[in-house]
Nucleic acid binder design. Structure first.
Length: 721
RNA sequence: GGCGCGGUAGCUCAGCUGGUUAGAGCGCAUGAUUCAUAAUCAUGAGGUCGGGGGUUCAAGCCCCCCCCACGCUACCA
């Protein structure tokens, strides 16, 4: 693939519902920041957009819970995001908001275009409805019992206790509406669907070959294996139409001229990626540029940085939307990162098992680059990775302090000590040995070539989205500097050979000067500090300095001229002592414990009794028809983990009941067991078998099930009341 | 259960379309050195490449079966 004229880089819009933790940072922001910083230093035309994702049910719900308003919630987190990103040196070209009027217009325009082109399918479906509040219920607004962990307050889209993804139909009763606490009913509603099944064929070709309409748009071999794998997995399974609208209060209205649009909002998942477009528009307005150049010109490379949870949306659904619209380019790559674990466990907001970035900035002032270094070093580029405070400390002390900062310090100290802080004469014939092995003689010219090689290699890694590799290469370059000093021993040479010492330190300073740029995409604050120390011009954004440096080197010219005065040595990094690390680990455990309000692990765990459900009337109870019965047959339902197919004798008839108890009972031990059966429950098909009722069982605090039976003096079919 | 990404030295990971004695960083051991925040540099020990079968002159890389971790997905009335 030929290299593009310009780049449009996006980072997943953070959802304005809570603060950022290190997992967010590792996923879509630091990776993009390194990439974009490098592109800018190479003088490439690049715009990097991001913004707050501010719509959807979770925000209204949170507002209600905190007795606040959605607007107040999004304002609060938008503000916090901006501070956090700026604090960490994550340097977007624009950080926009999906609540802005420009974004609303842009999204509606998109929707309108797709509607007019007849891309949507209007379809009626049944949704949960709250009769008292007179509202349809988003998944998030349906509360019920989690089928996985029995948390009675799980939401219809997710259980916050065990973190599993749910759908409303999976929730166990009693279901209730988050608005009125009443039981929701099913009601018909109309929505607009994107017929992904219609696009399946071209999406498949596009993903697998990078080709659309005979044109090669990207090279799939450059895509990460797990991204391709995930997409192929979806394509194999067949794509289904997906609703692009919701019945919601908080979001972007479906354009009013569209029939039946009253009360309908555009689905946040459609609204959010269009946020990349509106952010670009706003940037263009601010900078007197043409946004279309970035979204509609074939020579632009669109790159989406996201976490793996977003793969399907950015690789299939959003491209389908863009293509359905017609005027837009498709992403050239979607370098999704995997997940970052923390101290051996998954990061969890609800369990408060997280390192919050804004808190890190408070706890470790002026140590942004230490976190950046550690996060890039352990970036989950191709598989899940882990952050531990111990490794954070080790990489700081052993690599940043001992290797990088120390090398820079050695060179500046020696220059100040022996040459009054002036870059000494480069003597091209002076005898020096190479930093590699210390065996062969070398010259300034050869060393400039070596520097060029390192700088090129680091850049290549970054362009391949191998940020860990680039970072490692950068550190090897610093090691090379240490080796060069070690082999040439300027501290010894000064006693006999001032000219030779000057030559050695001149090379040392050239390495430091190059290192200053090598470090910059990863550690921008450090790069600034080094420039101050070297007394060279500060860089604001990056305007091709790296490219210039490569040119200078390949001409055999030096980066720092002889006689240039450098500043006093400064320690770029400082050691982090054990106590500080221990305190962070303690903080993590404390906050998590507070959140869970559980005693220390070594204490015997008290039984957690489930809270009582809301009071019901006798009439409610009387609706239940519970009968005595006996299990006649029991067998596993093939291809399921939990299902047993039971035949129950109810005296007056025999019933087939499918029950999710296979993990608790051996089928052959169930034969002739007496059970209680909810006999008037509406039948339901599971795995193609109609289940005609439900057998009762009790569950203890450890999740163990026990059948609730009758005593043997009873026959079958009698009423329980 | 289906699908997907992985399982390589104590730890974190590289290993391209199969090709000589399987690599790096950290940690560990020994030695050198003192300009530097006891930092640096050199040397070394450490792996039957998750397990089992197969294809091949040759397999960490290909095929089959199994085990483990993670993710998506189905089922859980």
């Amino acid at each position: 693939m030929k290299s593009p004229k310009r780049y449009l880089v996006t980072s997943a819009l953070p959802y304005a519902n809570g603060p950022l933790h290190i997992g967010h940072l590792a996923g879509a922001y630091l990776s993009a920041d390194v990439y974009v910083r490098y592109l800018r230093l190479m003088g490439k035309e690049v715009v990097w957009v991001c913004g707050s994702d501010e719509h959807g049910a979770a925000i209204t719900l949170r507002a209600a819970k905190e007795n606040s308003t959605p607007q107040a919630i999004i304002d609060k987190y938008d503000q916090l995001f901006r501070q956090t990103f700026t604090g960490m040196g994550v340097d977007f070209d624009i950080f926009h908001r999906t609540s802005s009027p420009l974004h609303h217009e842009t999204t509606q325009e998109f929707f309108r275009t797709l509607f007019r082109k007849g891309e949507f399918v209007e379809q009626e479906s049944e949704q949960y409805f709250d009769e008292e509040a007179n509202k349809f219920l988003a998944d998030r607004y349906i509360v019920g019992t989690c089928p996985k962990c029995a948390n009675p307050d799980a939401y219809g889209d997710q259980c916050e206790k065990c973190g599993s993804t749910l759908s409303p139909t999976e929730l166990l009763p009693p279901l209730r509406s988050a608005y009125s606490k009443t039981t929701p009913v099913m009601k018909k509603t109309t929505h607009w669907y994107l017929p992904l099944n219609k696009y399946e064929a071209w999406l498949k070709t596009w993903i697998e070959t990078g080709t659309l309409d005979g044109k090669k748009l990207h090279d799939p071999t450059e895509w990460k294996a797990h991204v391709l794998g995930q997409c192929k997995s979806w394509l194999e399974g067949g794509l289904h139409p997906r609703a692009m609208t919701r019945d919601l209060d908080w979001g972007i209205d479906v354009p009013s001229e569209i029939p039946h649009s009253s009360g309908k909002k555009i689905y946040v998942w459609m609204d959010a990626p269009i946020g990349y477009v509106s952010a670009t528009k706003q940037w263009a307005i601010d900078h007197n540029q043409d946004w279309k150049k970035y979204w509609q010109d074939k020579d632009t490379a669109l790159i989406h940085f996201i976490g793996k949870d977003n793969i399907v949306f950015h690789c299939l659904i959003f491209p389908a939307i863009l293509a359905a619209h017609g005027d837009f380019i498709l992403p050239r790559n979607v370098p999704a990162n995997q997940f970052l674990n923390l101290e051996g466990r998954k990061i969890s907001t609800s369990k408060n098992w997280a390192v919050w970035v804004h808190e890190y900035l408070e706890d470790f002032p002026d140590k942004q680059d230490v976190l950046r270094y550690n996060m890039i070093k352990n970036m989950p580029e191709n598989q899940d990775a882990e952050f531990t405070w111990k490794r954070f400390q080790e990489s700081n002390n052993n690599e940043l302090v001992n290797n990088l900062a120390n090398f820079v310090n050695r060179v500046t100290v020696l220059t100040n000590k022996y040459f009054e802080g002036k870059v000494p004469e480069a003597n091209k014939i002076a005898a020096m040995v190479s930093g590699r092995g210390g065996q062969e003689a070398t010259t300034l010219e050869a060393e400039l070539k070596t520097i060029h090689t390192y700088m090129t290699a680091i850049g290549e890694k970054v362009m391949q989205y191998d940020f860990r590799g680039g970072l490692q290469m950068m550190m090897e370059f610093s090691t090379y500097g240490n080796q060069f000093l070690q082999f040439n021993e300027p501290w010894r040479k000064i006693k006999t050979d001032v000219v030779g010492t000057a030559a050695v330190l001149n090379v040392g300073l050239q390495i430091v000067a190059a290192l200053n740029l090598a470090v910059r995409p990863f550690l921008p604050f450090t790069s600034d500090a080094m420039r101050k120390m070297l007394k060279i011009n500060p860089i604001t954004r990056g305007e091709g300095e790296w490219a210039t440096l490569l040119k200078t080197l390949s001409k055999g010219k030096v980066l720092l001229e002889t006689g240039h005065m450098i500043g006093e040595p400064v320690h770029l990094f400082s050691r982090i002592p054990d106590e500080v690390i221990a305190a962070q680990v303690q903080k993590l455990e404390d906050s998590q414990r507070e959140t869970l309000a559980t005693p220390a692990p070594e204490m015997p765990k008290p039984i957690e009794y489930k809270p009582l459900n809301q009071t019901i009337t006798y009439e409610d109870f009387a609706k239940l028809d519970i009968r005595t019965g006996t299990i006649l047959e029991a067998e596993r339902v093939p291809k399921t983990d939990k299902l047993l197919k039971l035949t129950i004798d109810l005296g007056f008839e025999k019933r087939t009941i499918v029950s999710g108890i296979a993990e608790h009972f051996d089928p052959k031990n169930l034969i002739q067991q007496r059970v209680l059966v909810v006999a008037n429950l509406a039948p339901r098909k599971m795995k193609g078998i109609e289940s005609q009722g439900m057998i009762l069982s009790a569950e203890n605090d450890l999740g163990k099930l026990g059948l609730v039976g009758t005593t043997d003096i009873f026959g079958n079919g009698f009423i329980v009341k």
